[in-house]
């Protein structure tokens, strides 16, 4: 990877579910001047551990800084860049679009083509839900723009590496659940620290 070429990276981080952990992460992003495009946090399969997916734009060096600085936060348990991994990458969007009796049929056609769904109907509008890779979400939104978008919410990208990959679960969850408490009563030198 070239150091100077700017690329979009998808990164997953596992965080201890502790007070203000998100504050620590976003504070770091802003303090280090990292360029974050989207960020999504929720529960992971392990109780007490949250999973964050974020997208950052930068060079190889930028990426190295993002991951190593983030990894230094005490509550960040594990971090991996899945950009070049075979991964399922999705985003969800809810789009409230203006729909009259004349345009409703055409919108429904688009919904079908995009394998989106209509989750709410009103006399003057529809709420459309789409779960898809980001570019398909973008494409549908741009088409629906022709009918008038009244409101929209997007979750940002979430990602999961396919199959029995060395990333994600094995390198993540199992590693932290198996970490033994460190005997901190020993003198530092004996514990291996200065």
């Amino acid at each position: 990877m070239s150091d100077t070429q700017i690329r979009r990276h998808t990164i997953i981080a596992w965080l201890e579910d502790k007070p203000s952990v998100l504050n620590r992460v976003t504070g770091l992003f802003s303090r280090r001047n990292f360029n974050i495009e989207s960020l999504n946090v929720g529960h992971s399969e392990t109780p007490g551990i949250s999973r964050m997916t974020f997208v950052t734009l930068g060079t190889g060096r930028d990426l190295q800084q993002v991951t190593t600085q983030l990894d230094k936060l005490i509550n960040v348990v594990h971090i991996c860049d899945v950009t070049s991994e075979p991964a399922v990458v999705r985003e969800m969007a809810l789009i409230k679009v203006t729909a009259t009796s004349q345009t409703r049929g055409e919108i429904m056609q688009l919904v079908e083509i995009y394998r989106a769904s209509v989750v709410d109907v009103d006399m003057t509008s529809l709420i459309i839900q789409i779960v898809a890779p980001e570019d398909r979400v973008n494409s549908l939104i741009s088409l629906l723009g022709n009918f008038g978008i009244e409101e929209m919410v997007r979750t940002g990208r979430v990602a999961m590496v396919r199959g029995n990959s060395s990333h994600g679960h094995n390198h993540g969850a199992r590693e932290w659940t198996e970490v033994a408490p460190v005997d901190a009563s020993l003198p530092v030198e004996q514990n291996g620290y200065h």
């Binding site: 201890e16 005490i74 960040v76 408490p181 460190v182 005997d183 901190a184 620290y193």
Partner: peptide
Amino acid sequence: YPDTVYLPGYKPSL
């Protein structure tokens, strides 16, 4: 006073 710490995200090592 605890003898151990449990900090899964912090692994300073020599």
